[in-house]
Design a protein around this nucleic acid. Sequence first.
DNA 1: TTGCAAAGCGGACCCACGGTCCGTATCGTT
DNA 2: AACGATACGGACCGTGGGTCCGCTTTGCAA
Lengths: 202, 202
Amino acid sequence: MTERKPRKDAARNRQAVLAAADDLFSRCESPEGVTLASIAAAAGVGKGTLFRSFGDRTGLLRALYEARLEPVRKAVESGPAPLGPATPPRQRVLALLDTLLCFKLDNRPLMLALEESGSGSPYQADHYERWHGLLDTMLGQIPGLTDSDFTAHALLAAVRADLVEHLAGHACVPRERMRAQLANFTAGVLGADPVRGLANES
Amino acid sequence: MTERKPRKDAARNRQAVLAAADDLFSRCESPEGVTLASIAAAAGVGKGTLFRSFGDRTGLLRALYEARLEPVRKAVESGPAPLGPATPPRQRVLALLDTLLCFKLDNRPLMLALEESGSGSPYQADHYERWHGLLDTMLGQIPGLTDSDFTAHALLAAVRADLVEHLAGHACVPRERMRAQLANFTAGVLGADPVRGLANES
DNA sequence: TTGCAAAGCGGACCCACGGTCCGTATCGTT
DNA sequence: AACGATACGGACCGTGGGTCCGCTTTGCAA
């Protein structure tokens, strides 16, 4: 194997940086303000260390994202209904989008930073590919629905971080209302009748 | 009136800058590469001039955008069907989104730069407000459709510049296919049956 | 315990880019 | 022609991401 065990202090510093960044992001608005130097300072390490651990800004953001996303990923990959793999497609799509929305609501500054930094567009990040692929597959299993690929993109676009931020931050749309609107919209896209209880489908 | 007629050379320089920027944007990929200094150089003026005319990068982008958008705006505000105001809502929504998509396809680098620069999110730009307001109104006139506000946001999100860029540039989805997919998707959102000829509705 | 690479540290340094400033050139009016 | 107002342009600045390299720490081994 190519694994070289990292030195103890290295591991500790990595954790410190992660923690500091996490903290700064949840504390401050406007991810612009969270500079790499400030993260390094908050973590009590030098900039060099930070870059060695994460490559660049995007790398750090991604690492943070992965860390926070872990439980969600688990739930989707092998959890119980309505998120887990044993759920019928319609409900699972609803559940997935709802989960994504909530996640972005709960991690606004980070998600904002991640999407806008991504050295270009968020569409190049492979975590996007993952969500898109999953959604695509699920949509493909819904009879009567065409263009699952594009539809997946469009649905994901409806929960983009900056839109969420705009609605939650500027328009002050409350969380539950947003969730309801998204569910309603999604149900419309999936065809059929707008779901009311979001859990009665064959 | 507060209008002070600008000096002749000022006007000429403004045009030169606009032209140069237009050219650079349509020529180069990755709007990152189009720096203000390079625009100034290409226009044969100093950076100071550029900033005096447009305030900042976003101002320049916006000016360019407005200029290119002019015909579209006219067509929407007072043109003939299916874009003009006399069109029934369903068709007009379809037509508007299609138009927007085509516009972004035709102005990829510029739109990309505009959306990602906007000193924050594209949602703070007032041209976004305009499109959203219009769409919102139109959607409100479609019976049986709820949450027109959110729906308008979601539909606009489906034609965001970076998504369009991703599909057209990376995934190499041909123009007509994208238009068809978008039309299909939109029709789904509007309720009812997926339109086939996109022009048979009461 | 001590010695000694290798791994890691950190902050001085670099560069690109957006944006400002002010001495100088041009306009256009009298 | 002459003079104020207007605009020019490029030197200059601040900021923030990313790099470099001499010094410190670690952990293995004698």
